[in-house]
Structure formats: C-alpha cells, structure tokens
Simulated assay, not measured.
Amino acid sequence: MPSYAVLLRGVNLGPKRKVPMARLRELLSGMGFDDVRTLLQSGNAVLRASATTPAALAEAIEQALEAEFGMRIGVVVRTGPELDAVIAAHPLADVADNGSRMMALFLSADPDPAALAAFDPVELDPDRVRIGDRVVYQWCPDGVLKAPDIATPMARKWGVTVTGRNWNTVTKLAVMLAD
C-alpha cells in the first residue's frame, strides 16, 4: 500500500483555522487510511492508502476537512518518491545551511505555461528562488518573515494551491514515509 505525505495549507497559524492534529488523525483514519501519523501542529500527516493519485487523494481530504471543520482547506499530497525527488533536486543546497530558513513551497499542480511565463517568482529574489517539479525552493537567510512573499502571488497568478514547509519538516516527512 503506497504512503503519502498530506500537507494542509494555512492551518494553526493563529486563532482561526484551527485543526487539532488528534482530530486530523481521527478524520483520516475514519476515511479508511492506514498508519496515520502527524508531524508538528502545522497540518502535516503521513498515511497509507490504496493506490490512487495524489490529486484525487487531496480532493477527497479537502472535502472531508470542509465537512468536519466547516472551512475550505487546501491540501497538497506527495508520494514518498516525489518527496525524495524534491530533496534530491535541492538546487540551493550549497548555500542553504539552516533548515529552518530553507523553504519548499509545494504546488498542487504544474502551473499553466502561460501563467508561468507571466509571473516568474525567481525575479523577486533571483539569488534565492528556484523552480522545481511542482515545488519552488526559497532560501531565506534572514528568516522567512523577512524574505519576499512569493507564495501568495504564485497561488493567485498560477491558480494552484501553494503550501510551504521548512527544510527540516520536509526531511522529517521523508523519513516518516520511509518507515
């Protein structure tokens, strides 16, 4: 049975959009997924599911979250091999020496080529942003809050869900998927 990393967008960042991880585990287990585990309080889960596509899995989880919590929460899903490929392709590894300041911005889908041509996030920070396969890498040496916000315009202009994780979380999720 394949394993998947489930990444919820924009939960538990303040007093609104709360999704307790215990309830998330219960919800996902109740959907029939196996070996459901969460990481941190920021909407990260790993699970095993019958073979499906990450997009179909994300849509099913988004619908269940809306029914359970009464709000639309974007979900991005990656398989273990997809997450391993993100790690292996890390284009800024030679300079990104702090995992809490290195971001992987996961995209729900490939942006339309015309939308990508119209907005290139690399132009906002050419030395610290690189585009990968359904991921944008962003090195934030002065901290995430001081780095240019590229996620909001990418989501709006590319029409995709974008959710970011720091490199420490990305590598922990990969280890959890490998277990």
Score class of each variant (00 low, 15 high):
V135Y: 03
A114Q: 14
M154G: 01
G132T: 07
P113R: 14
T161R: 03
V136E: 05
D120R: 10
V144S: 11
M154T: 03
D149L: 04
V162A: 02
I150L: 12
L124G: 00
R130N: 12
V144R: 09
P111M: 12
P148T: 05
R128S: 02
P141F: 00
A155G: 14
D149S: 06
A117M: 07
P126N: 13
V144F: 03
D133T: 13
L124R: 11
Y137E: 14
R128I: 01
D125V: 04
D142T: 08
T152C: 04
R130L: 06
V160N: 10
A118N: 15
M154A: 04
A155M: 05
V136W: 02
C140N: 10
P148H: 04
T152R: 13
P121F: 07
C140S: 08
D149A: 04
D149H: 08
I131S: 06
G143K: 00
D142K: 04
V162Y: 00
A155K: 11
Q138M: 02
V122W: 00
V135W: 00
L124P: 03
P113W: 13
K157N: 07
A155E: 08
R134H: 10
V129G: 03
P148F: 01
D120T: 10
A114L: 12
K157R: 15
A147N: 05
P126I: 01
P153I: 09
V136L: 06
L145K: 01
D112L: 11
I150E: 12
D149I: 05
D142M: 00
M154K: 01
V122D: 08
A114G: 09
E123G: 01
R156I: 07
P126F: 07
I150V: 13
D112I: 09
P126V: 08
D110S: 08
P111G: 15
G159R: 03
A151P: 03
V122N: 02
V135A: 08
V135F: 06
G132H: 11
G132Y: 06
C140D: 00
V162P: 01
A117E: 15
M154Q: 00
I131Y: 02
A155T: 03
W158R: 06
G159V: 09
D133H: 14
D120Y: 08
A155Q: 12
R130V: 10
L116P: 10
L145N: 09
A147P: 07
K157Y: 09
V136Y: 01
K146N: 11
W158H: 02
D112K: 05
P113C: 14
F119L: 05
T152F: 10
V135R: 01
A147H: 03
L116A: 15
P126H: 10
G132A: 14
M154V: 01
L124D: 13
P111R: 07
V160G: 02
G143D: 02
V129N: 04
K146E: 05
V136H: 02
D133C: 07
P148D: 07
V144L: 09
M154E: 03
G132C: 01
P113L: 12
D142S: 10
V144M: 11
A115V: 12
P111V: 12
